[in-house]
Design a protein around this nucleic acid. Structure first.
Lengths: 221, 221
DNA sequence: AGCGCACTTATTGTATACAATTTGCTCTCG
DNA sequence: CGAGAGCAAATTGTATACAATAAGTGCGCT
């Protein structure tokens, strides 16, 4: 299924994450509709979605602008994820059945494969990673929580700096997931929450480091 | 400022909370546009907002339906608010200056007035309450947090059962706010978080009780 | 020159018409 | 009598034209 509003969302999102516009820039709906190749109507819907994820914002007078993401805001995003996904893991631990846990294990097996290669397959890693977290979120069985997390998880932001991640970082992520699965098998919500918390907090620091290196690269050009 | 899409949002929201449609019912955009008195275009925007707040949902095939709120989901909503507003209070404690704290004190003074009357003024109470929490959220200075909380705080849900609240419950809320202000004055983020947490958790139990009584009333009719 | 006010242009908001999709019905066949 | 195909009605999705609002521009005034 591909509605025009979905393709608009994808294309505009790609445009933004590829750095097509600088923070602070104003963009008109018309420009975006050219980029997306559809009329303004579906573009407006896409913009709403992107606003929700804070990839776009509005001025006081409803002009569309590209927000700038400071270090603080990234820190804050990971903090919120830590709280909410920790909570999700806790609920999941009480609800997951054996089959579902096996599914998680299978997903994580793929993740292990992706990083076991001499040249790690970043795309596969990110895909498996996303599916793993989605599965856990789903298992928490809380529509609100799902919805809230959807607006926090900005996979592409991670993607941009994924190259900066060391193989060891990626392997550690896989091991975190293993431990999370163990916590689920033990049906220990407390353990699950703690593992998820440290998993995401470490991810933040790895991310922050990759980010600062990237900025150095940028300055060196 | 009153755009058509805002009035649509308000009217549809009022319609839903007044019980104009039963959980599980399907509603068409056209019906909603009759209710709102505007064309479908702004109605669609309003529906998106309401979806975000889970006052409306969609079927697999994008039909609009009225969701049913079970006891679990209300519990979950308060739990999420407890986590997030607790976090907001923590951040606020580190950022509020003396003037801002005075503003909070003024708002809470109005709240005290509203419940000191022989016949408590529920509308004023709710208004002051909303403003108090908004002020704290703002002070946390985290756009994501603000946005996430906006979709959780369903004031009208509270309103529906506000009549069931006892005067003592309302007064206790005011006292909670007083203690929160004290925590802010002391610049103690830990204290602030704890107070906010218990404040919201108690609110949940008061709410749940009022809710069950209401249901009994309903059954008695 | 600096400031404010009309006026022009640019941009967002709304309505309407039409296209695409889904639903529910009916009618046929096993 | 039930299951399924096919058609009609209902509903959502998209494009376009126009209305309302905000931004920019240049002029005259002090």
């Amino acid at each position: 299924m591909s509605t025009a509003s979905d393709t608009a969302y994808e294309k505009i999102r790609h445009f933004l994450l590829a750095g097509g516009a600088h923070p602070g820039d104003r963009i008109t709906e018309e420009k975006l509709s050219e980029i997306a190749g559809v009329s303004r109507t579906p573009v407006r819907e896409a913009v709403r979605r992107l606003e929700r994820e804070l990839l776009l914002m509005r001025t006081k007078t409803n002009r569309i602008v590209v927000p700038d993401w400071g270090q603080d805001e990234i820190d804050e995003m990971f903090t919120l994820r830590q709280m909410l996904e920790g909570h999700a893991a806790e609920r999941a631990a009480l609800r997951l059945n054996a089959d579902q846990i096996d599914t998680l294990a299978q997903i994580n097996a793929k993740l292990h494969e992706a990083v076991a290669l001499a040249e790690p397959d970043i795309a596969s890693f990110l895909d498996a990673n996303r599916r793993f977290h989605e599965e856990v979120t789903q298992a928490a069985a809380s529509p609100r929580l799902t919805q809230v997390l959807a607006m926090l998880v900005e996979q592409p932001v991670v993607l941009r700096t994924a190259r900066g991640y060391s193989i060891e970082d990626l392997k550690q992520s896989a091991r975190d997931h293993d431990e999370l699965i163990a916590a689920f098998r033990a049906r220990d919500p407390n353990w699950a929450r703690a593992v998820m918390g440290s998993h995401l907090r470490r991810a933040f620091h790895v991310f922050a480091e990759a980010m600062s290196e990237q900025q150095l690269d940028c300055a060196a050009e």
